[in-house]
Simulated scan of single mutants.
Amino acid sequence: MKALYEQAVQLLEKLIKIPSFSGEESFAANHVESFLNEQGISTIRKFNNTWCYNRYFDPAKPIILLNSHIDTVKPNSQYVNDPFRPVIKEGKLYGLGSNDAGGPLVSLISVFSYFYEKTDLPFNLCLAVTAEEENSGQKGIRSILDDLMPLAFAIVGEPTNMQMAIAEKGSMVLDCLSTGRSGHAAREEGDNAIYKAIKDISWFSSYQFPIENGLPNPVKMTVTQINAGLQHNIVPGECSFTIDIRFDHNYTCREILNTIKNHTFCETNLRANVLAPSSIDITHPIVKAGLAIGRKTYISPTSSDQGWLDIPSIKMGPGESARSHTADEYIYLAEISDGITIYIDLLNELFPHLTVAHKVETTHSIQ
């Protein structure tokens, strides 16, 4: 296990050195592909996505997808450290993408390597190292879903403190435009579009979608960008702003948009690539196996590539979600070590739960 951990940390250090912004992951994808090939693992490549299957693949057994992404967001201006220089200090590995999702990625790669040569697995494994997760791009995981063999369920590697996210919110982005009339700022001219936008922004920041008492907020709307004005002495005729929206199964995309249109005055344009909310049944074998080894379940407020999968999945990985996209991003080395061990324990524990589930399905089919 120590060798797997050391190999994982070395791989993560190399990946941190390679800029891999969404849509620009080719060098990182090349490195991961070479890393796997050097271990004797045959890979398949499409765009900047790489995937492979366990050596002793058995088509009669279910396929479990192990997935995480190689792309990162761009470093923000508050970085003190060089984001592309891996530094280990006080048990932490610093670097852009170390936590989201480098730690989960290299841990899953190590786990796949651990099981790759085993001849008696009760399941098959498909490792998919994918691109364009951070921007929900067209050439990410959804571009290869039709190329993968039929999958039973998935473990999506994201920083969750190795707890199981059994549901996560969907995500959509709304571009808004408030329109006024330009004029000279020194005279009583024009109709200030910024003032109009402020009224709608105030609604976005305070409106609560109705929900039963005791349940979490089903929709979260956050203003993340705003732009207006040409120069200091011109009343702006337009003000554009962007809304990040996260939502669960209680409201559909259409219901959310209708509510927005009924309460605001701005023009709205929904961006493509809406991520649907995802969930898995608490009685699913992978969830039972996780509970059996002491993992906890929770509902994630963030979204991931789970939203593109039409199969049951859990989101689970080393690291902490709150560190994602922050300056001087880091992951604890102990989190990677523990993550590899827990992933392996989870898959080992899965066998009896898969057997029981198979028996139940067989009984139902006979009846």
Rank of each mutant, 00 (worst) to 15 (best):
G23V: 10
P236H: 02
T259W: 01
V80A: 08
N192D: 06
A128T: 09
S143A: 13
N262W: 00
T362F: 04
Q78Y: 11
F351H: 14
N37D: 09
L151W: 09
G157V: 13
L121W: 03
N227D: 13
H69M: 05
P104T: 05
L354D: 11
V360N: 08
M149K: 15
A60G: 10
S113M: 13
V356M: 04
R55Y: 07
I243V: 15
Q306R: 04
A334D: 14
P216M: 05
S26N: 08
A28N: 06
S324E: 02
A292Y: 08
E320H: 09
L36P: 07
A289T: 04
F153W: 15
Y56E: 07
G229Y: 06
H184A: 13
Y251A: 09
F241D: 00
A228W: 01
K118S: 10
I155V: 15
I314C: 01
G91T: 09
L215Y: 10
K169V: 06
V360F: 03
L291T: 02
T242F: 01
L230Q: 14
E238R: 04
L145E: 00
C266Y: 00
L270E: 02
Y79M: 08
Y5L: 02
L275G: 11
A322K: 14
I155A: 14
E320C: 01
K2A: 07
N227K: 12
C239R: 01
P318V: 10
Q367N: 10
E267F: 03
V356T: 11
H325Q: 07
T362H: 13
L230E: 13
L347P: 02
N30F: 12
L93V: 11
S136H: 03
M221F: 01
F35L: 11
D338K: 06
M162Y: 15
T119C: 01
S365P: 04
M1Q: 12
T130Q: 06
P19C: 08
F247D: 10
Y53R: 02
R323A: 06
A3P: 08
N67L: 05
L309N: 06
F35T: 12
H232Q: 14
I201T: 00
V173D: 11
I226V: 13
D82N: 14
I234D: 00
S98M: 11
G40Q: 09
N217Y: 05
N273S: 10
N217F: 05
G170L: 10
A357E: 14
H69N: 06
E158A: 12
V80K: 06
E24A: 13
P75S: 10
Q39I: 11
G97L: 11
H232T: 14
G95L: 10
Y114I: 08
S202W: 00
T43E: 03
N250Y: 12
Y53P: 06
N233W: 13
T43L: 05
A29Y: 08
I293Y: 00
E6L: 12
T43R: 05
A292T: 04
A357V: 04
Y94N: 11
L4I: 04
Q231M: 15
T224R: 07
K196I: 01
V287P: 07
E329S: 09
Y332E: 12
T252R: 04
R271G: 09
K92E: 09
I260V: 07
S337P: 05
K169A: 06
T363K: 14
P83G: 05
E361M: 13
N161K: 15
D338C: 12
D120C: 11
Q39W: 13
L270W: 06
T264D: 01
T252Y: 11
F35E: 12
Q225Y: 15
V360Y: 06
A167M: 07
